[in-house]
Design a protein around this nucleic acid. Structure first.
Lengths: 157, 157
DNA sequence: GATTATTTGTTGACATATAAACAATCTATT
DNA sequence: AATAGATTGTTTATATGTCAACAAATAATC
């Protein structure tokens, strides 16, 4: 068995700070998207569909958004009620729906995007592009490590 | 008015990756804490109280956890029902409660901590301590920038 | 081809989160 | 001291999120 730190190390503090930053970012994005009466998750759905004009199934949305299937139902329900997305039947598969952006939805995303891109620039203010890119690399390995912990810890051996 | 990028830049991608990593981390921590039948938020409450043996009010908890007052009510309700925390009356102030860890709560936190600290080491696997520390610095300025956006965007000028 | 297994979306129960409105209390101003 | 304002916690309504169980449809196996 490896050495087990029983006191918080610098990496523990770094993890806490990472989660804290994410929380702050998420809160800020809620305020940000409220201007268009959207939640961050709702925008994420619209944004994904914007990038996939052919549309995609709800299960695919759930995987891209890293959230449970069942949550997509209500999310799409509300967006559909507002006329921003539409559930289209899939000829070959009567279980699933093809969720697509409506013209109104597309228009909304296009109206928001420039503000969003600008906000992203502001968020990284004071951080060079090189550092930002290195952080992205590190974040990806952090994601991988975290996923490993989660998947392995439940089935030891 | 400054230059407004209307196309996604590298900083936009970096922001997306940051949020994605946070989501993954949060999901992993849910799996992690499930062993002790705790949600991440519940553990965060216990952990904060562990660091403040004198206890603290619910509004203070809400500020430290960056969440709304009203959410603390149910969180503390459930922890209290399990005997992990206790609401103590404050002599000078009949509005607020002093939330403190019970001996059982303290014992639980102490049982979890070594696992948590170890998990934090694993999460940063492959990243040097220097880089982790620089990331922390950057994360703090990102937090600040995000907070500014959120607070200013609602009251333009 | 019939059976079995998997996939997809929904539902219901519940935890988590915000926001607004409320009651109770404390603080500040006059 | 009386009033006005601010703070604290709860409640209600609603959105977001998980999970388990379900129904319907598809895919795989025999």
């Amino acid at each position: 068995m490896k050495g087990q730190p029983c006191a918080p190390g610098p990496r523990y503090q770094a993890l806490i700070e990472l989660l804290r930053t994410a929380e702050t970012l998420w809160n800020s994005s809620r305020v940000f998207f409220a201007r268009w009466d959207l939640s961050p998750s709702q925008f994420n759905v619209l944004n994904l569909l914007y990038e996939q004009p052919e549309g995609c199934t709800q299960i695919s949305l759930s995987r891209q958004l890293i959230m449970h299937r069942s949550n997509i139902t209500g999310l799409v329900d509300r967006l559909e009620a507002r006329g921003l997305v539409r559930r289209k039947e899939i000829p070959g598969d009567r279980r699933a729906f093809n969720v697509v952006l409506t013209p109104e939805g597309k228009k909304l995303v296009m109206a928001i995007q420039p503000h969003y891109f600008r906000a992203a620039e502001v968020v990284w203010n004071g951080i060079t592009e090189e550092r930002a890119e290195q952080i992205v690399t590190d974040l990806q390995s952090i994601s991988d490590n975290a996923t490993k912990i989660a998947t392995e810890s439940n089935e030891p051996k």
